[in-house]
Design a protein around this nucleic acid. Structure first.
Lengths: 194, 194
DNA sequence: GTCTATATATGGATAGAC
DNA sequence: GTCTATCCATATATAGAC
């Protein structure tokens, strides 16, 4: 939920939503620290002061962008629940994560990946880290060995990178995603079957 | 070569080298944009102005840190040469890359990975990107299919991530590296043998 | 090689009018 | 909701003495 009200929208402008969208793109392509409020405001056709009506601080914009994402990841892990005890259940979770990330613009993935240090040092950065940690543990399964945890991490990294690979590979985006998912599943599965 | 002269060192101080070292650590842990020259100078026990004797600009410090790295990666690819036509040769290259990255402090890997957007937009950022692209193509081998290229990328990402995994995994660092290399080789190898 | 002092720009953020 | 005007902190970078 990016909007505040669930029913009819009583807002007089859509500046807030547009700011989140522009902010996502600029933060992802230029970096959070390198993007000024003036740049965002200019693209929106408003002044910096106008932004401060919608967001208390610059961090607030970043927070607004990321909150949905954290929620979605956490929800997927929780929904998986007891099914994570089996390899099949964990494969389903990995497929869902891949689907989710492929559906989003590449910007969100890039934003988190390439501004990870900065985000980590932010007040709510701990939440992001905790979410990723939980996801990796879920993918690794209960009582995972070191090798199992590394498999989970590698599989997740493959998926994550694929979301940005459209720029790198000349191939069709859908083909890249499918091939990557196949390899990620292969990695997660590993030699064993439990 | 971080030093300017090959023979006896005639410099009166080691400020330049220490600056590169401190800069690497701060850039990696806080981000390039979030690290000021004052912070670096303070840690060195000198003033900002002193830094400007050794480096023309702030970017120059980053450049000084990264130049060695680019050279090392390029050298490894070129040394591999015709051996890259075989899977065995490509596995050797991957091992060398893993060895190289594990030997360095985690900071260099983090610096590149988590400031990639910023570095890309820098004047010499194209060199970094070109170097990584060449490495991935080398690992994939000549006439690689899409799947082959994704395997190469995934294997490399696994290695790269392992260099930072000491903080995440409670296990012994050496064990993490060994297990990761094994999985990376497995991914690179894939189903086929050519 | 390093210092003090300063030029200059830009950033985030606020006050108050409309 | 948005504006103009402004505050204030901090940043990179330079000038010139020692």
């Amino acid at each position: 939920m990016t909007q505040r009200s669930a029913g009819v929208d009583h807002r007089r402008t859509d500046t807030r939503d547009r700011a989140l969208s522009v902010g996502l793109r600029l933060f992802a392509t230029q970096g959070y620290a390198n993007t000024s409020l003036r740049e965002i405001a200019d693209e929106l056709g408003v002044t910096k002061a106008a932004l401060y009506f919608h967001f208390k601080t610059k961090e607030d914009i970043l927070s607004g962008i990321l909150l949905d994402h954290i929620g979605a990841i956490n929800a997927m892990v929780e929904e998986a629940g007891p099914s994570l005890a089996t390899l099949d259940g964990r494969e389903v979770l990995l497929r869902r994560v891949a689907e989710y990330q492929a559906g989003r613009s590449t910007h969100l993935v890039r934003l988190i990946r390439e501004n990870f240090t900065e985000i980590s040092n932010l007040p709510f950065g701990a939440e992001i880290k905790k979410g990723q940690r939980r996801l990796l543990e879920a993918l690794a399964g209960p009582d995972a060995t070191l090798v199992g945890r590394i498999r989970a991490r590698t599989a997740f990294m493959a998926i994550q990178t694929a979301a940005m690979a459209a720029e790198w590979e000349s191939a069709d985006e859908k083909d890249v995603h499918e091939a990557t998912l196949a390899i990620a599943l292969e990695v997660l599965r590993g030699g064993d079957s439990g």
